[in-house]
Design a protein around this nucleic acid. Structure first.
Lengths: 239, 239
DNA sequence: GCTCTTCCCTAACAAGTGTTTGGTAGATTA
DNA sequence: TAATCTACCAAACACTTGTTAGGGAAGAGC
């Protein structure tokens, strides 16, 4: 018998039920993680099954013991990511927080999922638009719509209750927030000096309160070159 | 003789000197525009020379009368975009405006170039990271460094003279601005109801002044909904 | 012992890839 | 009119692609 390829039935109903092999790890999940890394590095189309197999220390054909196709690998990776993501989002929805708290919650949850699913986020960002045209990846478009509703509602509520700017162009603001959160996945590295919560807090502050100084004093008339280098007290160097 | 493939020597020294054919248009430029569209739609790797040729109404081999390779098409597209972009940026640099005016100028110029080079911007955003590893596309990395210096200097100057927030994390703010400007190329359409200048103004306002309402009053007295659990009237933390 | 399962390899396949070569209709120039 | 140039076509090339088929080594359970 040679017919595993058990798609773990990634619908939210049943638990994944990871199957352990002799080594104590789920080989399929291992391979998926490897594939996700390569997809994220090279892009879906530039990634060949042979490159994935190389990275995993096996031959291309052997991948097909675990997976039906290259497409199904991307499918598994993306749907696993979106399942986890919406699980987190739903908790925030149900909490019925204030617009501002919802905003912060969504951002924090997004950055948190980047820690677990960083390659998936990169793949999603690069390929979602094209993939969602195919029937198999219809759930990508569905998720995007749900995403849009959730964010738009939050922004609208914030404008209503006065915590967000009055004249806010909701569609533009939505796209702005959506994109600028997710592109961070490209440069954000969990091993960096900031964790997801810190980055999220920093991001929220930037987006909500702006980069400009808020006190009416404005800028000085003369730039007045400070002594030597720019005396930024803490952050030190920026590479 | 069958050896045109005249790379128009896209260095800033000499003018492009568009060669006109019988129809009055530069065929090579036409084909480049077509190729750029396909690249932007499908991604560089998923784009086959046959698809480009199809869209142009010719056969794959015929492209090689005009171009050396598929790679050289992407090269021409990207370098033409970056040449135009830096021409605009340099004018702003040389104007020696205030940090805030420089900020606005850079954003406006970026959105303006999106009008002319929208497909190129999409390609750049999707493929630059991978392509810049190849020697041929080394100028992509160079441009990115120059980009970083220009933006970082502007942000630093703004913090110095008090027009930007004091505690600003420059590296994070830089990446935030850079990414959020360029991803707009994906959804921004010139045929839309806003032109580049308007979008740029809107973007500048969002990023510099934030999405949150700035008057200390916070939300209205009647939130319409429940008084909310986290009634954070002021920016509170973020520090 | 034996069987069954797991996991991988070897070897090939058909289709699609970027690219080259030689040729040619039609306009332009001499 | 003859020669040349422009812009394409037709057909093939060597190679890479995702995928399949058959087989076999190692271990678990009986």
């Amino acid at each position: 018998m040679v017919t595993p390829k058990h798609a773990p039935a990634r619908n939210p109903k049943e638990a994944p039920a990871q199957k352990k092999t002799a080594t104590g790890t789920d080989r399929r999940a291992e391979l998926l993680a490897t594939a996700a890394e390569v997809f994220a590095e090279l892009g879906y189309n530039a990634t060949t099954v042979r490159k994935i197999a190389d990275r995993a220390g096996m031959l291309a054909g052997s991948l097909y013991y675990h997976f039906d196709s290259k497409e199904s690998m991307a499918d598994d990776i993306l749907s696993a990511f979106l399942t986890d993501l919406w699980e987190g989002y739903q908790r925030i929805e149900e909490a019925e927080l204030s617009p501002r708290a919802t905003f912060e919650g969504l951002v924090t949850e997004s950055f948190r999922q980047m820690e677990r699913h960083r390659p998936a986020v990169v793949i999603y960002q690069k390929e979602a638009r094209r993939l969602s045209a195919e029937p198999r990846f219809a759930y990508l478009a569905a998720s995007q719509q749900r995403f849009q509703k959730l964010w738009t509602r939050t922004l609208e509520r914030g404008v209503e209750d006065g915590s967000f700017r009055a004249g806010l162009d909701i569609p533009v603001a939505y796209r702005f927030v959506r994109d600028s959160v997710w592109v961070a996945a490209i440069w954000y590295r969990p091993e960096g000096r900031k964790n997801a919560a810190e980055i999220a807090e920093q991001y929220t502050a930037m987006v909500l309160d702006g980069l400009a100084a808020q006190d009416g004093s404005g800028q000085q008339s003369r730039p007045a070159r400070k002594p030597a280098k720019h005396g930024t007290p803490k952050p030190s160097k920026h590479g």
